[in-house]
């Protein structure tokens, strides 16, 4: 993995003209939880790309819909075929900015909070969102995390009336990653 990080670093470094400091991971986490009286549904994806530019606060996240793992095969099938239509819309992404990047010092231990604003895309629909995010720096290790709610209908995900009670009207989403610095 070290080798890939190094190579990735060189590429990014040569691709950017500025001396911007970038942080990234390919093993970020994206998960969601739907909690209803009928059943709990949980999906986890541990193969999500995060790239953060510490100079500008630019943040990009991307993941594959089919890489979400579920407890039950049937949940995974319904998620991909009926709701997310992952053959047609294979990816989800976020492109935005950490609003208060100036107040986040990734070189100094501490916990920093900021709003993150940008475009969230899933199921072929892009929406502007603003969410709360936390950056934790401890002994050179950087963790970023955000929890927010998503309403399926906002992304043209139609849930039939017969199973509407089985799926929460607001889905709790968690995005989390340990970021590594790209070194030249």
């Amino acid at each position: 993995m070290k080798k890939y990080i190094a190579i990735f670093a060189i590429l990014i470094a040569t691709a950017t003209t500025t001396q911007a400091q970038k942080y990234f991971t390919r093993a970020g986490y994206l998960g969601f939880f739907s909690d209803t009286k009928m059943e709990d549904i949980k999906g986890d994806n541990n193969k999500v790309n995060f790239v953060l530019d510490a100079a500008t606060g630019q943040l990009e996240i991307s993941g594959l819909i089919k890489a979400f793992e579920f407890e039950k095969a049937l949940m995974q099938e319904h998620f991909n075929e009926n709701y997310m239509e992952s053959d047609t819309y294979p990816k989800t992404s976020f492109k935005g900015k950490v609003d208060n990047m100036a107040g986040v010092n990734l070189k100094k231990d501490g916990t920093y909070s900021s709003k993150v604003t940008g475009d969230l895309t899933m199921h072929g629909v892009t929406k502007k969102v603003t969410v709360d995010a936390t950056f934790k720096v401890a002994g050179g290790k950087i963790t970023c995390e955000s929890k927010f709610d998503v309403v399926p209908e906002d992304y043209k995900i139609t849930i039939p009336g017969t199973v509407r009670d089985n799926i929460a009207s607001k889905i709790a989403v968690t995005a989390k990653a340990n970021l590594e610095e790209l070194k030249k």
Binding site: R26, K47, N49, G63, L64, K66, A67, K91
Partner: peptide, 13 residues
């Protein structure tokens, strides 16, 4: 494995 798509890497599940 089952092809999940392309996200810089090709992912198989």
């Amino acid at each position: 494995g089952i092809c999940a798509g392309y996200n810089l890497d090709v992912q198989l599940t």
